[in-house]
Structures are given as structure tokens and as C-alpha cells.
Write a protein that binds this DNA or RNA. Sequence first.
DNA 1: TCGATTATGACGATCGGTCTACATGTGGCA
DNA 2: TGCCACATGTAGACCGATCGTCATAATCGA
Lengths: 183, 183
Amino acid sequence: MGDVATHKENLVRTAMRLFRRQGYASTGLQQIVAESGAPKGSLYHYFPSGKEALGEAAVTLAGGLVREMLEAHAVKHADPSAFLRAYARTMAGWMADSDFRSGCPVATTLLETAPASPTITAAGAQAIDGWIEVIGGVFERAGVEPREARTKAQLVVAAMEGALLLARVRRSTRPILDVAKLA
Amino acid sequence: MGDVATHKENLVRTAMRLFRRQGYASTGLQQIVAESGAPKGSLYHYFPSGKEALGEAAVTLAGGLVREMLEAHAVKHADPSAFLRAYARTMAGWMADSDFRSGCPVATTLLETAPASPTITAAGAQAIDGWIEVIGGVFERAGVEPREARTKAQLVVAAMEGALLLARVRRSTRPILDVAKLA
DNA sequence: TCGATTATGACGATCGGTCTACATGTGGCA
DNA sequence: TGCCACATGTAGACCGATCGTCATAATCGA
């Protein structure tokens, strides 16, 4: 038998990477299986509901990675302005590293599946809520009222998602870095 | 012979509508042809380069429609804050009318094709630049310095695009309406 | 050793975008 | 006017890829 954890994990990681670059619908299961190195037939063993389950897992994984990044910046920067700058710099770095070809894996997949796929939509909503929670926490600790902190955090997330699109189209990190001016 | 203008136009309008709801890759040419009422074989007559040309035309059409809407609001509202509220209300109305299933047709298509398809990417960049020009103009006429006006306008566009995604996931117009707070 | 569970490669029905071969209508020439 | 060459418009068939299922093989527990 193959190594379950490795095969399953490779499948999800590869799916996340490809969805991010090519989109959800444009990425074939065949390509995911091939690039992950997992055996072809095993995909439906680990993910009985097929592509949708894979998409859900990829969104959840990506959401967690972004959240961890946000939390790391949050403990380092108490000042919202400094926090946003660090956040923006990180995202800009990811974008430049991919040569402006890979956006946010959560947004890319969600735009294509929400609300048609309830499970992916739910996974995406949970991921985004997590980000808003972390960002809102930074604002709150800086003295912003809880309700307004949450609204501002939501605005930051929206602006960042949009900025990632603009950055890809323009091949420039400028839109991403400008999000930091929201503080 | 069929009515060229009508068939070609119907093709593009239908493509725009379907790309917006289902995404670019998920929408088949067959469905576009069927729902547009145009004859099946005529698609490659009007669009020799196939789906990509159709996507480019759809993006350009959608970009123009949004720009017209923005210009209509711009002549009515000199105050940036009032302008943004009107803009946000219109977008929120579109989103609610579609039962939270259709986002921005430009963003949806662009996220899936940029920068893989140069022609669609270019069409999208031009559309977005047009919006920024109009929004920036409102800020400028309110006394904001040209450079900063453009940056702010870009931020508004990014925030709106992101808000459209959040609205779909949450089934709520709140994220869209909150964009007006950027003034 | 044997049964049960896990894992897998091959297969098939369907649909994808694209192209080629054929109607249809139009204008020039005798 | 009668006929033909041409551009325009159209339908169907093409090949490849799609996702999902199946019968079979490998491994584990008793």
C-alpha cells in the first residue's frame, strides 16, 4: 500500500497550487494526479465525492496557511498600520514570486464555485471569517470598537482580494501594497 | 442569411451573462450558442479565434456597461462620498437581483484567464483603467491631488471587486455597501 | 492461512472546443 | 434577362479530455 498521509496530502497541496494558477474548472483531475505523484485511481479513494471534496480541502488548507501568516504578523505588530504593511508586503512577495500568475487560491476557487457548491462555499466562508477575526483583533487591541473593527477588517480583506486581481492584470505589486493605506 | 448584428451581439451578451454566473472555463460554447439563439456553426464565423475572442468581447462589453453606470453617477454626485454610496447601492442591487449568484463579469473571467490569455488580460486592464479614470475624476474634482486621486480610485475598485466575492459567499450586500466608507 | 480492508490501474459515457464541407444569398458579366 | 463566381452564413462531425466507476490487486489483522 502507498503512504496514505503523503499521497492524500500531496493531492491537496498540488490541487491548491494548480487551482491558484489555472483556476478550479480549468484544472483537470488528471493533471493534479500526475503532478502530485499519487496513483491515478487513488484520488476517488481518498476523496469519494471527487473534485468538489478536493476543492474544499484545498480551500481549507489555503485558508489556514493565510491565517497562520496573519497571526504571525499580528503578534509582531501591535500597530494596525505596521501590521497592514507587513501583511501587504507578504502578499506582494507571494505574487511576485509566482511571476504574477497565482492569486489567492481561496478567491479563485470561490469565484468559480460559489454558491453553486455549498461545501466549497462554506469552507471559503470559514477561511475568510478566520482572516477577518485575526485582522479585526489587531484593530480592537489598538482601541477600535469591536463592531467597527470587524467592518474595517472585512474591508481590508475585500481590498486585498481585489488588489490581487489588479496585480495580476497589471503585473505590478503596487495595488497590493496600497492596501496598507487603509489603516 | 441570419441577422449578423443580432446574432453576434446576442452571442456576446449571452456569453457575458453566463461567464458572470458560472465562470469562464465552466461555461461551454454549446450552452452559449443554445441560449443566445444563434445558429451553432455561426460562432466561429463571427469569432474565428473561438472562445478567447468571445471572452475578450464579453469583458469589453461588461467593462463599458460598468463605466457608463459610473459616469452616470459621476455627473449626478459631485461629492465623493455620495458618489461612492450611489455606486455601492447600484452594485448591491445587481448582486441581490442575481440572488447572489453573479459577480463582476470582468473579474470572474479575468481571474481565470490572466495572464494566460494576453488578449483577455488586455481587454480587462483597459476596462478597469476606465473605471479608475472615472472614479479618480470624481476625487479630483473634489480637490484631491491627481496622483492620490488615482491611488484612491484604484483602492475603491479593488475593494469593490473583493466585496463582490464576499457578498456571494455570505449572501449579503453588506460588504458591498461598506465599500462606500472608503471616501 | 484466510478474510477484510485499503488501494489502484483500466475503462466508459459524456462533453469540451475546433474545423471542414456544404447551403444560402449577392453582384458582375454577357 | 440568364448565368456564374463569390462572399457570407451554417450544420454536423471530429478528436481529445473530462469526471467518475469498476473489477482487481496488495496489504493487514487474527
